[in-house]
């Protein structure tokens, strides 16, 4: 094991920034959700890397990562159900066009 911890953290930071770029610059609502998934994965890599390098006997890092898995799955399910429901009403998934509540 001769990979320093900073390599994992830099990889997770760049994945997070790529996801952030995806969320902020895509039109389609589903593509925004794809960016959010990348950000959640970056967070998970961070958690598991810290678990392994700092204290592998305490399971706090892995438990946190498991809970993040569950939360990501729940969020994707509800988010995609919302998007499909909005598509049935307004026939569009472009995020800018769903603006009924704008003044």
């Amino acid at each position: 094991m001769n990979i320093p911890l900073s390599w994992y953290l830099i990889l997770a930071a760049s994945l997070f920034c790529v996801g952030l770029f995806g969320v902020l610059s895509r039109k389609n609502a589903i593509a925004i959700l794809l960016g959010i998934e990348l950000m959640l994965n970056a967070v998970n890599i961070n958690l598991v890397a810290f678990w392994r390098y700092l204290d592998p006997i305490q399971m706090a890092g892995q438990v946190f990562a498991v809970i993040v898995f569950a939360v990501a799955a729940a969020e994707v399910a509800v988010g995609l159900a919302l998007i499909i429901s909005v598509y049935r009403r307004r026939n569009t998934v472009v995020a800018d066009d769903i603006d009924l509540m704008k003044w």
Binding site: L20, F21, S25, K27
Partner: peptide, 14 residues
């Protein structure tokens, strides 16, 4: 196209 017109700002922020 799939990206908004101000994608350069998001790239700068990232």
């Amino acid at each position: 196209t799939q990206t908004r017109s101000n994608w350069w700002f998001s790239a700068l922020l990232g």
